[in-house]
Amino acid sequence: MTSHQTAQTMKPATAAKKLGVYLQATPAEFQEGVVSRAELNALQANPPAWLEELRSNGPHPRPVVAAKLGVSIAGLARGGVTEPLTTEQIEALKQESPGWLRKERATQAEVRKEGARITKRNAERAAQSDDRRS
């Protein structure tokens, strides 16, 4: 008995998310079809001009905008940023440094600091637990 393997496919929205691009900015043929795992791998390994352009200049989806600004996605929403932004718009926001952006960056820094503290504490507890077992 031989196994028949079907190609794994995904919706364009899923593929765009994995590629880190805003779906509505992709070419129509990308938006209208399905993307196989092999096609996604090919796009990642050898991106066409449209993909390189979107990655460098945008418009960028919220997760990418948040990462470029150093804030959370929720922080973007609190700051009133609900639309995709281009790289130029992101740089302008960084230069302008509005109050909400400074506040959200500080919040994000605190979250990271607390996460590091908890990770360290858990590692110390695990080490103590291992010492007791020995």
Rank of each mutant, 00 (worst) to 15 (best):
Q8S: 06
T14Y: 01
T14D: 08
K17L: 09
K18Q: 13
K18F: 02
L19D: 07
G20P: 01
Y22G: 01
Y22N: 01
Y22M: 00
Q24T: 04
T26H: 02
P27M: 06
E29G: 09
E39K: 15
E39H: 13
A45Q: 11
P47G: 07
P48Y: 05
E52V: 07
E52D: 13
S56I: 10
S56F: 10
G58V: 05
R62L: 15
V64H: 04
V65I: 12
A66T: 11
A66Y: 09
A67T: 11
L69H: 11
G70V: 03
I73A: 15
I73R: 15
I73M: 15
L76N: 12
L76Y: 14
A77R: 10
G79Q: 12
G79A: 06
V81R: 03
P84V: 04
L85F: 04
T86L: 12
T86D: 04
T86N: 09
T87S: 14
E88H: 07
Q95P: 02
E96N: 10
P98F: 08
G99F: 02
W100G: 03
L101P: 02
A106C: 07
A106F: 03
E110I: 05
R112A: 14
E114F: 03
T119K: 13
K120H: 08
A123Y: 00
A123E: 05
